[in-house]
Nucleic acid binder design. Structure first.
Lengths: 142, 142
DNA sequence: CGCATATAGGACTAAATTGGTACCATATAA
DNA sequence: TTATATGGTACCAATTTAGTCCTATATGCG
């Protein structure tokens, strides 16, 4: 299905609930804020941190905080952080193991489509999908 | 994962292997052509037919054939035929049951992103992803 | 120091989705 | 009437995803 994983959606919610360079916010507090269980939230935050979108501080009064402003975080970054490199099809994935390559002629064209979608996601930021009133303007050329 | 289902990829391969208004081609023959099992191919062909992309003729010398030329079939049509309405997120899906709506503010913006991707897929045809030499040109405004 | 708080990392289980198969009914050509 | 081929549906298997738990490490403070 062409759908982001549920954990990725949660990832967006968590990023939206955080701020850049403010006091760290604990996983427990965030869990309450977004209405999810602590272990789940914890897992996602660790993953986003590993990808460099967040940073953390351990120990008492510790927690997580954004490394960038929300208007500088693209949807693409978040999705890749949560799901790894975007690959619409098996054959577009460079590490994919499409064993049907002999019967399939779409590989090159498909990669191109992949790029287009990738660009679409790179050109929209987290703050843009929060501002529901603001029109998102996309101009893509490929 | 933002990836089309494997069966959808197979669907593309089958469409590529078919022609408009020629003799019907049997599922068995197609299975050999693309290197997949007959039951699997059969299942996909039935689904594509139901969506109106193919038509079929039963009985001896029966089989499947395209209803349109490949340059008139968009990626979007094929994907929707195989996977149902495209919804990048749970909340973008009108039938989705996102119970976190109270904590999530991205719904409207996300729908917009969904539309952009949808359009990207509508603007590329099957024949374009077969012609690996031809440049696919996309100009999207949303 | 010792204790409470909080993240780091990895392993594990459960649930949901997807892929693949099989069966029986119906239609068609010769 | 027989061989060929699709229509529809139900089912099982495999994979993927979601969610939980446990132990280790770091930090602040009395």
């Amino acid at each position: 299905m062409i759908k982001m994983a549920r954990l990725t959606e949660y990832g967006f919610m968590l990023i939206m609930a955080l701020k850049k360079s403010s006091h760290p916010v604990s996983a427990e507090y965030l869990a309450q804020t977004v209405g999810l269980e602590v272990p789940t939230v914890s897992k996602i935050l660790k993953q986003l941190r590993k990808a460099g979108l967040l940073d953390s501080k351990r120990g008492a009064y510790g927690g997580y905080f954004l490394m960038k402003r929300k208007r500088d975080i693209s949807l693409h970054e978040v999705i890749e952080a949560m799901e790894g490199p975007l690959a619409l099809t098996e054959c577009a994935d460079l590490n994919g193991d499409c064993r049907l390559i002999d019967h399939c002629y779409m590989s090159a064209g498909m990669r191109r489509v992949n790029q287009v979608i990738s660009q679409a996601l790179q050109n929209v930021t987290v703050s843009e999908i929060m501002d529901t009133d603001r029109k998102i303007t996309l101009q893509l050329k490929s």
